[in-house]
């Protein structure tokens, strides 16, 4: 694989032009505290608002697309902070083993960091594929933990149907969040 390590860091995540005049609810606002605050709010919506609206049966997740978008468009230090905060929010809201989401999100973060300069984020397909693979990976990582801790009796048809719904929802939300970035990023010369 021929990777150009000399490629510049995208200006697009630091440019003032991208911080102003937008819908304010988005990752990489340009203010570190705002990014962290949004993450806490997104985590609360995921773990408190959605379960009460859907009766807790449908596992909708906003956090995964939000984090994936952050990994793609934000500078690495902000992405790492978002990764730590996001995974801790998830893990301290459930009785899941500690480090489970941290590991899963870290792998997604590392792969996106390695590939984000190689893909054209101007088009929709890289976004769709990234959101799909990320959500699918999180869902499968959870299933793997269940399989390791007990037998697969829980992994029935309804479980997988719910996971499919969750992945689809994540892709739709992710595309809605990423749409302004697709419009803003016009050239192929400085890929993120």
């Amino acid at each position: 694989m021929n990777i150009n390590f000399e490629m510049e860091t995208p200006s697009f995540s630091t440019s003032d032009d991208h911080r102003r005049g937008w819908w304010p609810i988005r990752p990489n606002t340009g203010f570190y505290w705002a990014d962290m605050l949004w993450l806490v709010v997104i985590g609360t919506i995921d773990n408190h608002v959605f379960p009460s609206l859907t009766g807790g049966i449908l596992p909708f997740s906003l956090l995964t697309p939000w984090l994936v978008l952050t990994f793609v468009v934000a500078p690495a230090p902000l992405s790492v902070s978002a990764l730590l905060l996001g995974s801790l929010i998830q893990e301290t809201n459930a009785g899941c083993p500690r480090g489970m989401y941290l590991t899963a999100y870290w792998i997604i973060f590392a792969i996106i960091m390695l590939s984000r300069k190689l893909l054209s984020w101007r088009h929709a397909v890289p976004w769709i594929v990234t959101f799909f693979i990320s959500s699918f990976f999180i869902s499968n990582f959870e299933s793997l933990i269940i399989l390791l801790r007990q037998d697969g009796a829980q992994l029935d048809f309804f479980y997988f149907a719910k996971q499919l719904l969750r992945v689809s929802f994540s892709v739709i939300v992710g595309m809605a969040l990423a749409y302004p970035w697709m419009l803003r990023f016009k050239g192929e010369t400085t890929p993120p």
């Binding site: 459930a94 009785g95 083993p97 590991t103 792998i107 590392a110």
Partner: peptide, 22 residues
């Protein structure tokens, strides 16, 4: 590049070696 690549493999190993407690 190498830190990220090794992290991808190291993170699951570290996680699966823990007690799996919340």
């Amino acid at each position: 590049f190498w830190v990220l690549i090794s992290g991808i493999f190291a993170a699951p190993l570290l996680f699966f070696s823990t007690q799996f407690s919340p």
